[in-house]
Design a protein around this nucleic acid. Sequence first.
DNA 1: GTTAACTATGTAATCGATTACACGAAAGTA
DNA 2: TACTTTCGTGTAATCGATTACATAGTTAAC
Lengths: 342, 342
Amino acid sequence: MSEKITIYDIAKKLNITAATVSRALNNNPKIKDSTKQLVLETAASMNYKQNKLALALKSGRSNNIGVIVPRIDSNFFASVIRGIEEELYPHGYQVIICQTHENPKRENENLYTLIDAQVDGILMSVTDVTNENDSAFRNVLEKNVPLIFFDRSKHIDGVSSVTINDFKGGYITTKQLINQGCKYIAHLSGDQSLEIFKNRFLGYKQALLDNGIEFSEKYVIQSKSSVEAGKNAINILLELETPPDAIFSSSDFAALGAIQELRDRKINIPQEFCVAGFSNEPFTKFMELSITSVDQSPLEMGRMSARVFLEQVGKTDTIKIEKKVVLAPELHIRKSTSRINS
Amino acid sequence: MSEKITIYDIAKKLNITAATVSRALNNNPKIKDSTKQLVLETAASMNYKQNKLALALKSGRSNNIGVIVPRIDSNFFASVIRGIEEELYPHGYQVIICQTHENPKRENENLYTLIDAQVDGILMSVTDVTNENDSAFRNVLEKNVPLIFFDRSKHIDGVSSVTINDFKGGYITTKQLINQGCKYIAHLSGDQSLEIFKNRFLGYKQALLDNGIEFSEKYVIQSKSSVEAGKNAINILLELETPPDAIFSSSDFAALGAIQELRDRKINIPQEFCVAGFSNEPFTKFMELSITSVDQSPLEMGRMSARVFLEQVGKTDTIKIEKKVVLAPELHIRKSTSRINS
DNA sequence: GTTAACTATGTAATCGATTACACGAAAGTA
DNA sequence: TACTTTCGTGTAATCGATTACATAGTTAAC
């Protein structure tokens, strides 16, 4: 049953005041060594545990940080969270997880809830980019709570971000397809109001231009990140007058769907059609027809986000620091785009 | 800059006391409607947000629950966490994530840290089963904090658990291999001091016995859950006088490693050798040679764990409720064990 | 018209820890 | 001896919200 032990209980037992106990536990130099010793021993024997809530209330710091992601059960986000947790654990921070399920309303709710819970910082990958909900972001900034975007970022003054160079990711992937001799390269994009998708698209476009390949709107399809969406995209693309001979997909899942559909249609990969994805989800490597994909170093992204947070926390008295960290994308070339070495 | 607004600020503005404000905000029936109205409006106009920390300190409830998993970046655990978060979100609970990395010391630390943080409950998958650290678990129970195990459970009085029927999972998988005509079935197990691995092993053994196949210790290998471990296991097994013609692996990753090694040795799957895994990780389905695996319904497991927590929270005055929920495993039969229909 | 009952609000304690300030005792200084 | 430091600890306010108890004002009851 063990009632909760407080510093008052220790004080009473030793016939001293709670103030002395508190100071002794905090190793305050003004306290006599013998007293400290006594308090420490008594605390241990009574199985005393500091109440972090009381401390949090007094200090205004909860030692919790909030992480908001679209969903946790994707390898990418789970890995980022892993990185964040690992980096923050030694500093005594706990990580609170929130999911938006790509729902802007949930994103807002999560932001408010985390602020209510007095988190010391918020690390997130944005779901929504409409300006409607900017109030939720402003609310965070007004409370002087460090806000850091990772992966899916958004331009807001005073907000740091950790992203990869998506433009480059799109560029090198497209370039690789071109190197394989592909002439008609399609692109599966996500919601273009999100910078990551826009930048990957722009990288794709630039690579085409730089290599003398004409860009065509018809080859660009906006879709969700799902296997189904990848299949649908193929169905649409193959109806075109000049069907493409390669796809650069912003999603590994859509890339997988594309491959499945192409196979059903007995189209040889990579000989007749190359497919490249994005995110380097584990399955892309494990498949027999392994999928070329761009690695976004999620673990490193998480760690870096946490480090940026640590730099900013507690420095709210000075002018807001705005830091933009951009990690390098790494293209993993695999069978789905390897005509030459396969 | 927006200083934090408290009920005292509202009180001062309206020339009433904080008590009245608090009551008005909580819709206390003793407060005049006109006063309530006024307080609510003022609170809104001043952008008042309740300080949950103060509330938590006063009430002794933090509205946080802790989740401890070996690691978050595996599809299984991420999915469980997703289920937990989804179930608890409507009830106003926040989820705090901790990882043990299979390190018993970290597990203990996490337990103590969560208790220090005054969480209202702990949901976890155990890493360690030695009795050394039982003190950490006892500490949780003594504080009357509901403790619920999911997947990897441990016998402790007063602790509920949500697991799948691992025995059955092992049994039906082995049975399926037998049905395919396999005669010498090996088993890759995990740390047998963990019940899940022990039970899967026992299910495997029973299936052999029930079908007149002799059990041999030589066919059982303890290994980690990794691709490498699966390769190593194959190397050992194929050295045996009578090498096996099938493997039931407690890990999808080890199953994958086994498949890769078998392929390198030009052994045909499933014709010459069948392989089945456990967990139904996404890649098992996506591979061209899809892997038979046991689904553990992680999402449902998470939701169920959360529900058990909700049932128990706040009922600490009565006798401890100990609930054991056992979900049914579901075997997904795929190409790696389908001799007949492939 | 006096008392009882009810309404709406104020007063002050509480949750558990920290900390500015106060103060008595011991030690040092002149 | 008288005066200043220093040391070690106590007193009480504080963080922000809740709530048992007290109380002033109003209405009802007989």
